[in-house]
Nucleic acid binder design. Structure first.
Lengths: 298, 298
DNA sequence: CATAATCTTTGACTTTAGTCAAAGGATCGC
DNA sequence: GCGATCCTTTGACTAAAGTCAAAGATTATG
């Protein structure tokens, strides 16, 4: 990856400063109005029933600190704390009626604040702002996602393949049979590789590389979680797989995909893949692609 | 102005949340490394010589709190505190050599953090991110700017005209004579109006409306501070002036501008102004425009 | 020139945020 | 069924952030 130019760094920091000072600070100040910020945030994160453990990891809080804050909210009648039905070590927290009202009020205030900030703009300018923000957010999310090789039998790998299978099953008119998935040993060690994309610790995508014949590899199960689509993650996975293939001395990569996955086909085409006749009789493929690799990528 | 749609509010808040949680929090955490955040921020805001008063209003701090923080930094040898040369009530703070080194280190860390966040992106993606951020920032700044009528003799009005005159003087080959500026009484009360644009309390632009003859007004001195250009502020000032003109029953607005101000001409044209023959013998005008107003704007 | 206003310092607080360790109850793995 | 592990609670702290008011030193104002 290219080193980051000082120009980019400067502009990025410039925006950070402006934004956190102007918006972030304001937000915090208003949200917590008559309640400590920590408690207000907690209230916000408790949807309908979360475990303390979940909150603790999500917000990165100390166990003792969290326990006490939850207790304070309980004393104020805003949340109900109960024992987890299946694991009595865990505590479940949920909003009471009063808590939901309080949260609504909190949201109302935050909405009013946001509306006040946007007030001076025309509708067209608001549209442009919204678009710029969503572009920025997409790119920031993408930047935060890491792609790492994992063992084909690792839980994260299997979880991705399960999600992939369910996804395809719902999309294909003919359904999808899990027996078509790669077996762990096909994508481990000498035989191949498996990559998982992580966003804040959660697997949000995957891709497999399998040896078809000497010097020829096959890409399979390139998949991106619905929440992480349209970020450009598939291309990142593709790059990682191709780099791995090149490192393993493959000169040709093949793959098949389904007619209904038109975005996928467009991506492969623009990535240098060309359509070829079927090279195997996979049940679910009906478009076949190939790309010649140009030596190991540095 | 249109009411803000819930869609815009939702997207705006969505971005806020993501950004403050991902970037803002991180930033704070790293910046303050071995020093309380408050002190780190203070160090950052002390360029070369600011008064405590300035810092107090800029950062919104309690006087006592600030006094103590400054003292802590002084004790660490990072800043020098002296009495203001012209007003012995004020204290001036400036960085010492050690303070500048410390600040540099702080910046280095923040840069490294930013570079780390951008690391996963390609150069093209970084470009797009930078562009989206600067668009967002421009629009957020514009949204924060208010345009208000002030008396033509008010200090803010005179300050803007001074800046305007200096600006024009530097731009025009023939210089600019301040006697051409409107006199306060020409833009006060019945005779006309004067608008000033404020960004965070500072005047950053102005525009004057003057009665030429019955039902005919003239726009003069539409000016935007160099720091606030390319935000769309001139157009906002124009809108405010036209609204005011319509409210006063003017049916025609005229103005003159200089050949060297091509952006200004483009703006007037796109705002519905058409070029006309000279309507007076102003020294500095060489392009003349007119617009017919279509009744009071609501 | 007296009075009001401005700016800073100091003392005495409070609240928030957060840490650490010990202990108790529950579940998991063998 | 026993020890290791996990989750929460509680007690005992600390540091940071912030508030309030009184007082001292200057400067502005009528």
């Amino acid at each position: 990856m290219d080193p980051v130019s000082t120009q980019h760094v400067a502009e990025f920091r410039q925006f950070n400063r402006y934004f956190t000072r102007r918006i972030g600070a304001l937000d915090d100040h208003y949200l917590g109005q008559d309640r400590p910020l920590g408690e207000a945030r907690l209230l916000f994160e408790i949807g309908d029933g979360v475990s303390l453990r979940e909150l603790r990891t999500r917000l990165g809080l100390d166990a003792g600190y969290l326990s006490r804050m939850a207790k304070t909210l309980q004393a104020q009648g805003l949340v109900r704390i109960s024992v987890h039905p299946h694991d009595s070590r865990l505590r479940m927290v949920e909003l009471t009626r009063a808590g939901r009202i309080e949260l609504k009020e909190q949201n109302r205030r935050a909405d009013a604040l946001a509306a006040g900030l946007l007030d001076g703009l025309t509708t067209a300018q608001r549209d442009r702002l919204t678009e710029a923000m969503s572009t920025a957010q997409r790119l920031l999310r993408l930047a935060a996602i890491t792609v790492a090789p994992v063992d084909g039998a690792a839980p994260d790998a299997r979880a991705c393949l399960d999600a992939y299978a369910a996804d395809i099953d719902a999309r294909f008119p003919e359904g999808f049979d899990r027996s078509d998935l790669v077996r762990p040993e096909e994508v481990s060690g000498e035989a191949g590789a498996f990559f998982v994309a992580y966003e804040e610790g959660r697997p949000v995508g995957c891709g497999a590389l399998r040896r078809l014949e000497p010097r020829v590899g096959e890409l399979r199960h390139v998949w991106v979680h619905p929440d992480a689509r349209r970020l450009g993650l598939a291309r990142r996975l593709l790059t990682a797989l191709e780099r791995e293939a090149a490192a393993r001395g493959f000169t040709v990569l093949r793959l098949d995909t389904h007619a209904s996955l038109t975005e996928a086909q467009a991506m492969y085409r623009s990535g240098g893949y060309t359509e070829i006749p079927p090279y195997a009789d996979h049940v679910y493929g009906d478009h076949w692609f190939e790309k010649r690799l140009s030596g190991p990528v540095s």
